[in-house]
């Protein structure tokens, strides 16, 4: 009922649910081992930045395009080609269609 057979193995989500439950239990235990003197109303909730003053909220947030810039930087050559291909030109869309059609026809016709 729960498991599926993949031919060379199987997958049973119930096992994984057990793993998740255990993980949550461990998380709960670790959390309950934490400090008891934490109060939400005091200045304890303020972020601690190695003693530096906190900037205004808008500048503190790590924006979407800041993430993975290294990935993009190291694959610059690949992305330059890729972005050039995604030209946004309607004619190119149809051109790709014709090109793929031609390639497919050559493959089927020759082989």
């Amino acid at each position: 009922m729960f498991s599926i057979d993949t031919g060379s193995g199987f997958w049973n989500p119930i096992l994984w649910v057990l793993v998740i439950i255990i993980a949550f239990l461990m998380m709960y235990i670790l959390r309950s081992l934490g400090r008891k003197d934490y109060r939400k109303t005091t200045e304890q909730i303020k972020p601690f930045l190695s003693g530096n003053p906190e900037l205004e909220k808008d500048k503190m947030h790590v924006r979407g395009s800041n993430l993975y810039w290294g990935f993009r930087e190291s694959l610059k050559g690949f992305y330059n080609v890729l972005l050039k291909l995604h030209s946004g030109n309607t004619s190119d869309y149809i051109l790709w269609f014709v090109v793929i059609m031609a390639i497919f026809f050559i493959i089927i016709g020759v082989i």
Partner: peptide
């Protein structure tokens, strides 16, 4: 012009 109507790209 089809070359200039491509605000959507990349």
């Amino acid at each position: 012009d089809v070359r200039r109507i491509r605000r959507l790209r990349e």
